[in-house]
Design a protein around this nucleic acid. Structure first.
Length: 408
RNA sequence: GGGCGGUUACCGAAGUGGACAAACGGGGCUGACUGUAAAUCAGCUGGCAUACGCCUACGGAGGUUCAAAUCCUUCACCGCCCA
């Protein structure tokens, strides 16, 4: 992508694409500051130092995780220096604000393992050659209690209570742990240590980045970093943020066909935000994409296919994306059969129910009964109605729209 | 240290002795329709069982009762308030 030629204003637009501060004033201010910093860097002939921290809690990344990586990638394209910070120190402490009560505190081994996976998977988006990986335990574990007190003394409780999350919980008499306050400090200290020009994060990091990091850097005698706060990517339901525990996520290493299908299942109205946050498209391309949809010159189905193809291509390559698309068209639009199916060897005297269960097409016999009742079970397009009848014989068995098996 | 409250299915959240396999919302699944696994509408969403029905399940263990998610005891975890 030839982005070297962008003007400063174009660069700012590109880099602010998808950023959301919940306040237009702040956004404008940040954009202005970014512009100034870009100009300054140009004059000094140096790249901007950009970073984003990741707590390596989940070993499998989904699209939601890639939003900030995409942003880092854009900085790389423009020649800036990107640091991928693995929050091995922060995640050892655990963050109760996640509400993930069940999540056990991670062991150092797990953190190391997850961090590794994170970095590897992130290279689907980032340029590995140009990415510096750091662990924040490197500097955070060296801080003494005295240091911590010194850092904390730059903040008042009142300042922390302006944070939405805290304010709400305080008002509702819910728990706010003391160490949650330190989270913001640690993050600020990351930025300070890295001498960051720009820090990227999700909107849940708004306070940590915009308020805490910037203030801390100022207090420690540095120029505050510019905060780029990315919008939250919704899940397949198009409403709620993408998250594994909500089950609306799309993993980036899974089966390309599945990824394509899941992308096709997002509501039409979510296409815009997906295009803005998780594609490689430029602001102009995105703008024209959205305009074509709203004007009706691009059919929503076509639009979504284009989107799905783009995203699958990023993670699995063009060939796999084309294949996934062809399969989708064949199976769902033409109601045909997939190219490859698992086979199941029919056993003597098996009933329909037995067969469904033993072939693994259903999770339980009760579920199989329900599906039969709902006319969801077909053998070569013939609906099987009686769960107890002997299984008719060879053919292609289809359960619902997506599950196929070849009976031999 | 004292007082009070919470723990319900994939998630959120009702339910305070029987009609509770547990309201409702989200998610998931299925069908119809279609423009797609979109939207919309309808149904399903613990397990076993060819009907009857049985078993397991409301944080754990025990108890009261003909009957417990609901009452009691106790344990665990979580929270709030007052010190």
């Amino acid at each position: 992508m030839a982005k070297k030629k962008m003007t400063i204003d174009e660069q700012v637009a590109y880099l602010m694409q998808g950023a959301e501060y919940g306040d237009d004033q702040v956004k404008k201010a940040m954009a202005a500051e970014l512009k100034e910093r870009l100009l300054q860097a140009e004059k000094e002939k140096r790249p901007l130092k950009v970073y984003c921290g990741y707590d390596p809690t989940a070993p499998d990344l989904h699209l939601g995780h890639t939003v900030t990586m995409r942003k880092l990638r854009q900085f790389q394209e423009l020649g800036h220096e990107v640091t991928f910070v693995i929050g091995d120190f922060t995640s050892l402490i655990g963050d109760p604000s996640d509400k993930d009560k069940l999540r056990p505190r991670l062991s150092p081994e797990q953190v190391a393992q997850n961090g590794q996976t994170y970095a590897e998977q992130s290279f689907k988006v980032l340029d590995p050659e140009k990415t510096i990986i750091r662990h924040n335990s490197e500097w955070l574990s060296k801080l003494t209690f005295k240091d911590l007190i010194h850092l904390s003394s730059n903040f008042t409780v009142g300042q922390f209570l302006t944070r939405d999350n805290f304010a709400k919980r305080f008002q509702n008499n819910e728990a706010i742990y003391l160490h949650e306050f330190y989270y913001a400090l640690m993050q600020g200290y990351d930025a300070f240590t890295l001498d960051a020009d720009v820090q990227i994060g999700g909107s849940d990091q708004l306070f940590n980045i915009v308020t805490a990091s910037r203030k801390l850097m100022t207090a420690l005698g540095k120029k505050p970093n510019i905060s780029i706060i990315m919008s939250i990517l919704p899940g397949t339901d198009g409403e709620i943020r993408m998250s594994k525990s909500l089950g609306n996520h799309i993993v980036i290493t899974g089966d390309p066909k599945d990824m394509y299908g899941k992308l096709m299942s997002i509501p039409d109205k979510a296409m815009g935000i997906f295009s803005r946050l998780v594609t490689r498209w430029t602001p102009d391309e995105i703008k024209s994409f959205e305009e074509k949809i709203s004007s009706g010159s691009l059919h929503p189905k076509e639009a979504k296919m284009k989107l799905a193809r783009e995203i699958v291509t990023i993670y699995h390559g063009q060939k796999a994306a084309e294949k996934a698309e062809a399969e989708f068209v064949r199976v769902f639009q033409e109601q045909g059969q997939p190219e490859e199916m698992n086979e199941y060897k029919l056993k003597k005297g098996q009933s329909v129910l037995d067969m469904l269960q033993e072939s693994g097409l259903t999770e339980s016999r009760s579920q199989a009964r329900r599906l039969i009742q709902q006319n969801a079970v077909r053998l070569d397009d013939q609906i099987l109605e009686d769960p107890h009848a002997k299984f008719p014989g060879k053919g292609v068995l289809q359960v619902g729209k997506r599950r196929f098996i070849k009976v031999i």
